[in-house]
């Protein structure tokens, strides 16, 4: 209630579109299944610890993919891991979003040239919504990535797109 507390003179109705309400609800409580893989995971941990506090954006870590809305792939994706990632992604309920954190999961990062066992980009395995660059990205960058994702969700529409 906070901000709106005692702001109206009489009991009232707020008018909004169903779409906006849904989007607002979705974007303000994104439960994440943290998928910490490598060095970037440490920065992800730092983001949810003191100082940066992921919680204030409604992001709560959830160990199970079945109750999560976003998955943050943070770190180097290897061939051995890629098939597992796909399986976890498939277990998440729709609507689901993916943030790819760090150069490694964006494109292979420092390992793009000689990495015989590194997948050169997460998007070869699952679709990605937001890419956060950096090696490792600072916690602020991850927060920015999350805000970008929220923006994307805010603009989603229930209306079927017309075929052009």
């Amino acid at each position: 209630m906070g901000l709106l507390d005692k702001q109206f003179s009489d009991e009232n109705i707020i008018l909004t579109k169903a779409e906006d309400l849904l989007n607002w609800a979705r974007l303000s409580s994104l439960w994440q299944v943290g998928f910490g893989l490598a060095c970037c995971a440490i920065e992800m941990m730092a983001t949810s610890a003191s100082h940066y506090d992921f919680d204030r954006f409604g992001v709560i870590p959830r160990p199970s993919p079945r109750q999560a809305d976003i998955i943050i792939i943070s770190g180097t994706v290897t061939l051995k891991m890629a098939t597992r990632i796909k399986r976890i992604y498939e277990q998440m309920p729709d609507p689901k979003y993916v943030i790819s954190m760090g150069s490694c999961s964006n494109s292979g990062g420092p390992y793009w040239e000689h990495g015989y066992h590194v997948v050169k980009g997460m998007d070869r395995v699952i679709p990605v919504d937001v890419y956060v660059p950096g090696c490792p990205p600072r916690p602020e960058a991850l927060l920015e990535g999350l805000l970008k994702l929220q923006e994307k969700i805010r603009n989603e529409s229930l209306v079927k797109k017309e075929k052009v």
């Binding site: 891991m81 597992r84 390992y111 040239e113 990495g115 015989y116 066992h117 590194v118």
Partner: peptide, 14 residues
């Protein structure tokens, strides 16, 4: 193990 095998030793040779 090996889910994070990033080929460090191969990189060193190059």
């Amino acid at each position: 193990i090996g889910y994070l095998h990033r080929c460090f030793e191969k990189h060193c040779e190059a």
